[in-house]
């Protein structure tokens, strides 16, 4: 599962988001500019994308920079500060071709992350296979 990577080193939020975004670039789902746009969102608006304790959902606006609806995940070696002391250990990067796309996957992800046990599984993941099976519905093929 190439859309998940664990044990990733990042020294700040920009590197963490970029690491997650690069998985989407490598898969051919987004253009590199999409990754810098995701970083810019946090630079401009702050850490509001930290949707759960230790978890960020990075994304930019849907549109031309996206060729396929997709979500990737990196689990960091060490948590990094996304601003206001909000420490993040895992970053999901989401890309959608338009505003109505991918809503189901988003709902599925939200449901999964509201389960504390699953949250802990993601935050402490040391191998991709372990979390990949639970994320199949979210990440798609």
């Amino acid at each position: 599962m190439s859309l998940i990577r664990v044990g990733v080193y990042a020294s700040n939020f920009a590197e963490a988001i970029t690491a997650a975004g690069e998985l989407l670039v490598e898969a051919g789902h987004v253009k590199p500019e999409y990754v810098s746009a995701m970083v810019r969102v946090v630079e401009e608006l702050g850490p509001y994308i930290v949707i759960a304790e230790g978890i960020a959902l990075a994304h930019a606006s849907p549109g031309d920079l996206v060729s396929k609806n997709s979500i990737s995940l990196v689990v960091l070696e060490n948590a990094v500060d996304f601003g206001s002391g909000k420490m993040v250990k895992a970053v999901f990067a989401m890309a959608a071709t338009d505003h109505s796309a991918h809503i189901d996957a988003l709902g599925e992800l939200a449901t999964l992350l509201s389960d504390q046990e699953f949250l802990n599984t993601v935050l402490n993941a040391s191998d991709t296979a372990h979390i990949a099976s639970r994320l199949t519905l979210v990440l798609g093929e």
Binding site: V41, I49, I51, L57, H59, M94, L106, A110
Partner: peptide
């Protein structure tokens, strides 16, 4: 409300 009206705010709306 979220920054872009997509992603965070959609999860928020669902919840």
């Amino acid at each position: 409300v979220c920054g872009l009206g997509y992603g965070t705010s959609v999860i928020l709306k669902n919840n």
